[in-house]
Structures are given as C-alpha cells and as structure tokens.
Amino acid sequence: MSIVASLRTPRGLAVALLLLALAVLPLLTQAFDQRYLLSIGTRIVIWAIAAISLNMILGYGGLVSFGHAVFFGIGGYAVGILGAHGVVTGWIQWPVGILAAAAWAALVGALSLRTRGVYFIMITLAFAQLVYYVGVGLEAYGADDGLNISRSRFPGLVDLRDKTSFYWLCFALLLGTLWFCSRFANSRFGFVIRGAKSNDLRMTALGFPVFRYRLAAFTLSGAFGGLAGILLANEGAYISPAMMSWVKSGDLIVIVVLGGMGTLFGPLFGTIAFFVLEESLPPLLDLVRKGWGEYWQIAFGPLLVLIALYARGGIDSLFGRRHG
C-alpha cells in the first residue's frame, strides 16, 4: 500500500499526524516556551524505541521478557563507564553500548529461550536483577546513587547538550527503528517469529530452527534496547541502577500491551499514552479533590488491571483491523 493510500485509513492518518507532531515538537515547545515539554517529548521518543524493540519479541514473538529495562542499564553504563575513563567520543561509546547489550541479550537468550512460559518470564527477570545488583555493587561508578556523566561527543556533527538537536537525533533514530521493525515484521525472518508465536511445534515440524530464529530476534531486540539506554543516559547526563529496576521492565510491558502487541505503531501509541497518563492523572485527580493528584497511581494501578482484563487489543485496535 502506498503512503498516500495509507493516509486514507484512520490508522494511517493518525500515525501521520502523530509523527508530524513529534517532528515539529521542538518548534512548538519553543514557540510556547515550554522547555519542560521538550524533555518529556525526548523521553517519550527514547522509551518508544525501547518499547518497539521489546515488541519484536513480546508482541511478534509472544515471548514475555520481563527484563527488558536491563538494556537501558547496559547502554547507559557503557556510556558512563567509558566516559569516566576518558573515552568520551560517541563513535566508540555507542557501538560498545549496542554491542554489549546485544551480547548480553544473546547470552540470556541462549539460556532462557530453552525454557517455556512462566520459567521464561522469571529467568529474564532474574538475569535483569543480576545486572541491576552488579550496578548497585559498582562503588566506582556511584553504586546505588548513580553517577553524573558527560554526554557523548560527536565533534563537528551534533552537540548532544543542545536539547533541540538531541531531540531530533532521537526522533531520527525512532524513525530508523520503526523502519527496521516494519522490515523485520514483514520479512521471512519476521514471519518465522510470528509463526512460532502461534505454533512453534508446527514451525519446527516445517523445518525451521525456531530456537535460532528466536535467539536472533532476542539479540536484535537487545541491541535496540541498548540504543535506547545510550540515549536515556545522554538525555539526563546521569546513570543509575534505577534505570534497570524491574519496575521499568514492567512499565515497558505495560506500554507495549497498552499500545497494541505485535503492531508496528502500537508501542509508539502506548508510550505516548503512558506518559500522557503519567503527566495528566495527577492534575486531573487534583481537580476532583485537592491533594489527590499525589496519589495518581492508586487510579493507574486498577487501570492496568482493567486493561489486562478487557482491552488486550490496545490502542492500535481502536483503528480497526490492520492490514497484513
């Protein structure tokens, strides 16, 4: 389907408007002098990259990985640790971060993909906790308190300290991730992963080495997660074990399910919805009664329960059935 034709569908139109809004966000926040919104926008874009990468295995592959935030940590600590030793150039930091995340994903995948169901959930969670505690134990890099880092340098190309350029860099990387994910989902590789989700025995019987395909997908997903971690560290110029706490992994799952599992734009919808809820529930509750806003999670928690029970299609399903 051509781009012009896809604009006529509700989903295509919504996505186009959304991406357009994200593209011009720095101009809007500058015009209205709302710098705070730009920083939220940057975090939305970064989290969307992570959510899209989780969606590759969770949504398309049906593998409930409960440790995806670990890649935030690995990417972030690669930037922070290299920076602390004087390696400040992004040309080294970024590939190291992405490769380290991919290598860890390959290792965890090789062990965890042999198991099924709840064991898989728990193992991915436990390996993420393992890295979390390594971060807590790293006295030289701030241990529990975290570490202020200097942002990666790309001399002559882009200055990451400039919020607007950094936002556009993140946005460009989001577009790249979306492009990659759409290629992935519609490739033969992607169809094997999706086929194995509905029936891995049949895929095996058809002669596909399902384990190896899944491992490759898991590794790719980790690599993109690492990229998101690198960006997250550069966004706040700060790393800490809290980046990879299991609650963050839970948030990522929430985002993917909220947006619509196994859909190209679902994770993006989900991230925006998640952050909008997080920012708007407190003032909304404050309107109901002064002081309630502080306790917004008391409404957010039951909302998650309701989503799990009644709204599994996520936001994406509001736009009707998707094509292919």
């Binding site: 969770l58 409930v64 409960f66 959930i121 839970g250 799952i253 929430v254 399910v257 999670q297 008391i298 957010f300 928690g301 039951p302 909302l303 998650l304 329960v305 989503i307 799990a308 029970l309 599994r312």
Partner: peptide, 13 residues
Amino acid sequence: LDQVLATFGLILF
C-alpha cells in the same frame, strides 16, 4: 502476560 500486567497494576495500587 495478562496476569503479569494485572498484578503489576495491583502492586502500584
């Protein structure tokens, strides 16, 4: 997955 999601919501609650 539904169970993880719903009980995660309960933790926040």
